[in-house]
């Protein structure tokens, strides 16, 4: 409990020395370490801010590029859409034209087929009609009908123009071949007499006909004078009728 001046003085000196020691070896290094740490933090903060700024700039740039890219994409899409519409319209026009041409062609083909079919049907109908007529006429045919047809032939010859009749006379006179008369049924005397009398009056008296029989004529006769052929028979008439019907159908 006593105050010792020496102790007081030494303690004062001790503390001042301690203060110097701590200041020199402890506080100063700690402050330096804190300063370094603060500097590092400031650098890190500055670097982070710099990076953040760069990131913001990059983001801005990317945003701008993205906007431009989107605008370009929209423009290109619009152009492509327009081109697509134009191409579509062209293709549609071509397809429509092709379809119209095809339709026309098919219509033509259909009409041709129809016409052909109609012609075939007409021909078949004509043939059938001719066949039916021939069948019916065969039943009606006979020497009498041959005789009647002979008279019709002679009557037609008489009504020929004079020039044609004269040419026919010259052919009959100049030709050395015999006059051939083909009859559907065997020619009887009456028929021969009628024919020879009529022909002699019209073409001249020197004619010597040869008679032949051809049942295919159905009824009637066919007269061959040189290169000329006169005929009045049902077979030729039916054939003529059928041919005309076919021509009409065309």
């Amino acid at each position: 409990m006593e105050l010792d001046p020496l102790t007081i003085i030494l303690e004062i000196i001790n503390f001042l020395v301690l203060l110097w020691i701590l200041q020199r070896f402890l506080f100063k290094p700690i402050r330096n370490a804190l300063a370094r740490r603060q500097e590092q933090q400031a650098q890190a903060l500055q670097e982070a801010e710099s990076r953040e700024q760069k990131a913001a700039e990059l983001e801005q740039r990317l945003q701008t590029e993205l906007t431009q890219w989107e605008q370009n994409a929209a423009r290109r899409q619009q152009e492509l859409q327009t081109q697509l519409q134009q191409e579509k319209a062209k293709i549609l026009t071509r397809v429509q034209e092709a379809a119209a041409a095809e339709k026309t062609r098919l219509e033509s083909l259909r009409q041709q087929d129809a016409a052909q079919l109609q012609q075939q049907l007409r021909q078949q109908a004509s043939a059938t009609a001719a066949q039916l007529t021939a069948t019916m006429l065969r039943r009606l045919a006979g020497p009498e009908l041959d005789h009647a047809l002979a008279r019709i032939l002679l009557e037609d010859l008489r009504q020929l123009p004079a020039t044609e009749l004269q040419e026919l006379k010259q052919v009959a006179a100049s030709d050395h071949k015999p006059l051939v008369i083909t009859v559907a049924h065997s020619a009887n005397d009456g028929l021969k007499q009628t024919l020879e009398g009529g022909l002699n009056n019209l073409l001249g008296p020197s004619l010597q006909p040869q008679y032949r029989t051809d049942p295919d004529l159905i009824s009637g006769l066919r007269i061959k004078i040189g290169s000329r052929l006169l005929h009045t028979n049902l077979a030729d008439e039916l054939k003529h009728f059928t041919t005309e019907s076919a021509d009409d159908a065309r």
Binding site: L6, E11, L18, F25
Partner: peptide, 26 residues
Amino acid sequence: ISRAVLTTWGVMLLLWGMSWWLQGRL
């Protein structure tokens, strides 16, 4: 020299040693 002064020197020595040791860590 009192015991307190001697002890104080010991404390000073200890603190100086600790400060020197801590410098390397800092």
